[in-house]
Design a protein around this nucleic acid. Structure first.
Lengths: 243, 243
DNA sequence: CGCCCATTTGACAGCTTTCAAATCGCGTGG
DNA sequence: CCACGCGATTTGAAAGCTGTCAAATGGGCG
């Protein structure tokens, strides 16, 4: 068993969920060179336009990908949990087409880009798991496009609450009926293409329907099946291993 | 030089645009086993829920990825041009989380999934180019999420017209000021999260502003800079090689 | 205790949708 | 070569979901 105080252990856990790794693969992952870094809430991990030199593992804390439009509004394209490899996207594409920013204080491990690529092809099991992981990210992007493009506000919010519940549970951060959501209603709006005012109204609607309860930013799901139905949610796109 | 009547030649062209391939790599790509298939307009290449056995190269014609929501409406998540490897996404994820459908009549080459993966890891240059290609797809998904979530209807349409123009030109299907768009206004609406009626009005608005001209489904861009500005368009996310 | 930011609420405006009908384009058949 | 028919496009009017603006309330931190 791998000691959990290995800094790269969360990455190993993620890769094992995305593919099949043998003992030598596991050791190779933990042997990657890295540099630890701490980030404040709202700190940037990557800025749009950056040239990638490192790939980033989110060890603790939450982060999100965002793009800014002409009017100054922003769109959050995905949320990342502890254990996520936040930046395989940008680091292979070289020039970052979006920013990655911290939602909370966070600890990361920066791994040189070349070391990641070298490992991916030296040990195909690992490479396939990493590739798979980036494709799951892509599947989530597609679902978010669909969510914003073709669902009404209430359904969008119910959907995203279901997604977070499933992913938090899969990451071991709470079961799928209760979790702490480290996001403001403004940020929820930036995820769903809504204004914070309307997010507030729709959350209240979900609460009044008895589907969820809120206390500060912790969400309890009182009626999972009801929320799944209200959110038109089908977890297939998350490609979770034990589903 | 590779003979252009090699059925897999379009794939080679795409991969060369996504990475650096030597002669042995090129020969290995063309040596992939494949089966040719013809599709009618609206025919399915992959259906949501399918178990992937083959990866698909779009040799001629246009295709799109789509997801259907509870109300029966659909969201188109991306458009694919001749030469695109339409299904690396689904074939590595195993269970398709979305459908791929033909916009026009199309010819494809089906390549066994295992052969693709084996080649990717046997020849890292090829693997990296394929991985890169899936990441560019992901970058386009993010931009579409942003487009739909945070831009108004007119801007969305101008943006998508710019994207098509750049990609058509990059694929050698017209220059970036005129191209044939094989989509109905209904389908444009499914790309942008709009109704066909509103697509019609906004296209007219772009036309009246002197930015574009339309004749049937062929689009002429009269004022490229104006359309780029109206569409808040920055081609960086397309990660085109010669940009 | 007091400040600051997030949340909440209400009234109103507006962009986009909805519903319907007319027009146009184009392949088919006489 | 022209009439017919069907789907796509176009247009108008009205409804509605979501956004905007503004102010009140609430909670956390120094």
């Amino acid at each position: 068993m791998i000691s959990s105080n290995e800094p790269l252990a969360p990455m190993l856990g993620k890769l094992c969920a995305r593919g099949t790794l043998d003992d030598a693969d596991r050791a190779a992952v933990l042997a990657l060179p890295y540099k630890l870094k701490a980030h404040d809430a709202d700190g940037y991990i990557v800025r749009e336009g950056d040239i990638a030199t490192h790939s980033c593992l989110l060890r603790t804390g939450f982060a999100y990908r965002q793009k800014i439009v002409k009017t100054g509004e922003r769109q959050i394209c995905s949320i990342h949990l502890p254990g996520d490899m936040v930046d395989l996207q940008n680091s292979l594409l070289v020039v970052a087409d979006h920013s990655v920013q911290c939602l909370t204080r966070a600890d990361t491990a920066l791994i040189p880009r070349e070391a990641v690529i070298e490992l991916a092809f030296r040990r195909p099991n690992i490479g396939l798991a990493m590739w798979y992981d980036t494709l799951v990210d892509a599947a989530i992007f597609r679902e978010w496009t669909t969510n914003i493009g073709r669902r009404d506000a209430r359904t969008r919010l119910a959907h995203i609450l279901c997604e977070f519940a499933m992913r938090m549970a899969a990451a071991g951060l709470g079961d799928h009926t209760a979790y702490d959501l480290p996001m403001s209603q403004q940020e929820l709006g930036d995820c769903t293409g809504l204004t914070p005012v309307h997010v507030n109204r729709m959350l209240r609607s979900l609460e009044e329907a008895g589907l969820i309860a809120r206390k500060q930013r912790s969400v309890s799901i009182l009626d999972w099946d009801g929320l799944v139905s209200a959110g038109d949610f089908d977890a297939a796109y998350l490609h979770l291993p034990n589903a």
